[in-house]
Design a protein around this nucleic acid. Structure first.
Lengths: 212, 212, 212, 212
DNA sequence: TATGAATGAGCATTCATTCAT
DNA sequence: AATGAATGAATGCTCATTCAT
C-alpha cells in the first residue's frame, strides 16, 4: 500500500541500489559516454539531481556500479572449488559450471563493460584485473596443476589451458549480451561448458575414467 | 612524379585512408563517444574541417572505418580453406591459423569495437554479423561437418564446436588489445591456437592419426 | 526554566538572529551569489529546510540580514552628536570617533556588502542609501556647517568635506575586512581618525585653538 | 563596409579584447558569480562557445580581465612622479591628480571588483595587492618622506598619510560606480583631490608657501 | 582542397526551493 | 518546529558541425 508512494517518497536505503542497477544496464547497453544521466535517472525513477545525493559524479556512479557488482561475486567461486575434496577433474567441472551458471543469470556483463571502457578508466581496470581476472585465472590454474600432480591430466601449460577453458563461456556470455537480437544463441552456457569440458578433458586426460 | 613528393606532402588519394586509420585506433582505444573529431584530425595530421571533406559526419566516418577494415579480410580466409583438397583436419588447422595470424598483426580489434558499440549502431551491427560473424562461423562449421562426414571427427555439434574453436583466439586478441599493460600475454595467438587445436582434435578425433 | 536548556538546545526566539548572524558573515566573505544556503544552514547549526521557516527566500534572508544590522546602529550616532552642546569641533570629533569605534568592532562590513551587491539589489540599495548613507552624511554636513557658522571653520564645501572625513575610515574598515591576510593594517580606526582629524581640522581651522 | 560583417566573421585578433571589455563591465555590475557566460557572450556579440576559444574557463576569463586592465596602468603613475625634479609638494599633487584623472576615465572599477571578489580569488588578490596596492602606496609614501626630508612637511606617519590621501579619491570612485543612480556625485575626482590636498597640505605644511 | 574561427545544441553539475515525515 | 530527501531550472562547459576565407 505504501509501496505505491508519491513522487516525493523517501527511500534513502533502497535508492543507491536502484540507481546502480539502472545505471549498470544503461552503461552496458550504450557505453559510459553515450549514457546520459537523464536516462539513468529516468530508468531509476528519480530526477537527475537525486543521483547527486548518492554519487558525487557520473564517473563515481560508474565505478560504484562496477565495484558493487563485482564484490559479492568474488568469494563465491573460490569457496565452491577449494573446499571440495573431490578429484581435480570434478572440482574443475564444478568451478566452471558454477561460473557459467552465474554468468547465465546476469542481466549485464561486467566483462563486456570493462572491455569497452578499460582504456578510459585505468585505475578501475587495474582493480578489475587484480580482483577478478587474475584471481579467477589463478583458481583455474590451481585446479589444473592439481590434476597434473595427481596424475589425472597430462603435463600441460596451465595458463593457456585456463584461458582456453574460460574463453568460450566468457565470450559467449558477452556475445549474448551484445548480439542477442541479431545472432541469438540457443543453448545456455552450461551446455556449452559441458560440451567443451568433455572434449578438453578427453583431450588431456591420461585415462578415460578421468574425463568425468 | 607525385611519388617524389616531400615527406610531409600527402597525395590526396591517400587522405581518406590515413584518416580512417587514425580514427580506427582512437575509436578502438576510447570508444566512439569518447573519441573527439579533434583527436582524430590531429592524429591524422589534418584539421577538423578537413574530415568533413571526406566524411559527412562522425558516424559516417566510424562506419567507414569499420567497413573499410572488414572488407579486405573477408575473402581471404574462405579462399584459403575452401580451395584446399587436404583433409578436413588440415583445412581446419589452416583456417584457424591463418585467422590467428591475421588477428596477431592487427593494431586494433574490430571485434572489440563492435562489442562496445553494437548497441549504438544497430544497422552496422547487422552488417557485421552477416558479413563477418556468420560467414566465419559458417566456414568453420563447414569444415567440421566435412570432418565428421569423412570419418575424421566424431559426431558433434558443429555450432558449438565452431564457437569453442574461435573463442580463445578471439577473446585473447581482444584481451591483448584491452589489458595489454595490466595483464600482458606472453605467447602469440598461433601458439594458443595450436595448443587448443591439439587438445580439441585429440578430444574429438576418431583415430589418433587424425589429430594432425 | 528554558534558560537552563542544554548547550545544544536553542530557544526558538534566538533562531532568526543566529541565522542572520551566520548569513551575514558568509555573504560578507563570499558575496551573495557565491554563498550557498547549505553553508549558512551549517554555520547556523540548522538544516537548510529550517531557513525557510524563518525567511521565505535567500533574497529575503539577505535583505533581512542587511536591514537587521543597519537598524540598531541608525539612531546611535545622531544622538551622540546632536544632543551635545559642545563646540562643532568637539562634536565632529565625537561623531567620527564613535563611528570609528562602531566600525572597529564589527565583524562584517555592511558597506562592503552593499558595494558588492548594490547592482543586484536596487531596492535594498535605495533603502541603504536613504537610511544610512544620506543620513550619516547629513549629520556630518550639519556639524560642518555649524562649525562654519560659529566661526570655527573656514568657509568650505560641506559635502566634499564630509566625504573626505569619512572616506579614510570607511575605506580602511572595508580594506581590513577584505585584505586582512594579504595587507594587514596595524593601527585601529580611531588612531586613523584622530590623525586625519588633526590634519584636516588644522587645515580648515580659522584659529589654532579650534583644532581640538 | 566590411566592418558590417556577418555573424560568422573572423576577428581572431580583436576578439579577446572585446570579450574582456564586455566581461569586465558585467563582472563589475553584477559580481563574478551573478554574471552568466551567456550575458558576456551576448554583450561581446559572440556565442558562449566562442568564449572558450579564447579563455579556458570563466575563472580564467575573470582573471584575464583583471590582469589585462591592471597591467597597462602600472608603470604610468610611477613615471610621472618619479622623474620630476619639482618639490615633493608638486610631485605629490601631480601623482594624485594623474591617478584621479585615470580613475575618472575608467568605465569600471577594478578596486570595487577586487573588494567584492577578494575572498573568492586569493591568488588573484595576492597579485593585485602586490602589483597595484603596495606599489601605489609605496609611491605615495616615498613622496611624503621626500617632503619631510626636504623640510616641506612636518614629521608625520607616511603610511597613514598615504592611506588618507588616496581614500577619498578611491572610495568616491567606487561610490560613483556603485551608487551612480541613487546618489550621484556632482564633482569630479580631480576637484575632490584638489580640495583634499589643499586642506591636508595646509594642515601638514611647515610654511604656507609649501601648500602649493 | 584545406583551414580554423564560430556556432549552438547537448550534457554534467549545482543549488534554491519544496514537501512528506 | 525541524528535517533532509527530492526536485528541476539554471549554468558552465563540450564538441560535432558549419562556413567564410
Amino acid at each position: 500500500m505504501s509501496d505505491i508512494a508519491g513522487p516525493r517518497q523517501r527511500r534513502k536505503e533502497a535508492r543507491p541500489g536502484e540507481i546502480i542497477e539502472a545505471a549498470l544496464i544503461l552503461f552496458h547497453q550504450k557505453g559510459y559516454a553515450a549514457t546520459k544521466l537523464d536516462d539513468i535517472a529516468r530508468a531509476a525513477g528519480v530526477t537527475k539531481g537525486t543521483l547527486y545525493l548518492y554519487f558525487p559524479s557520473k564517473e563515481a556512479l560508474f565505478k560504484a556500479a562496477i565495484s558493487e557488482t563485482i564484490h559479492p561475486n568474488l568469494d563465491r567461486i573460490e569457496e565452491l572449488a577449494l573446499k571440495s575434496t573431490e578429484s581435480a577433474t570434478i572440482r574443475l567441472r564444478t568451478a566452471i559450471h558454477s561460473w557459467a551458471t552465474a554468468l547465465n543469470e546476469c542481466k549485464g556483463s561486467i566483462s563486456k563493460l570493462m572491455i569497452s571502457e578499460a582504456g578510459n578508466f585505468p585505475e578501475l581496470t587495474d582493480f578489475y584485473i587484480e580482483t577478478v581476472i587474475k584471481r579467477s585465472r589463478a583458481l583455474l590454474m590451481l585446479l589444473i596443476k592439481a590434476g597434473v600432480d595427481s596424475g589425472e591430466f597430462r603435463q600441460t601449460d596451465p595458463d593457456m589451458l585456463a584461458r582456453i577453458l574460460f574463453s568460450p563461456i566468457l565470450l559467449t556470455s558477452i556475445w549474448r549480451h551484445t548480439y542477442a537480437s541479431q545472432d541469438p544463441i540457443t543453448y545456455d552456457l552450461n551446455q556449452l561448458a559441458q560440451f567443451h569440458l568433455d572434449i578438453v578433458l578427453h583431450g588431456i586426460a591420461i585415462a578415460p575414467e578421468h574425463t568425468l
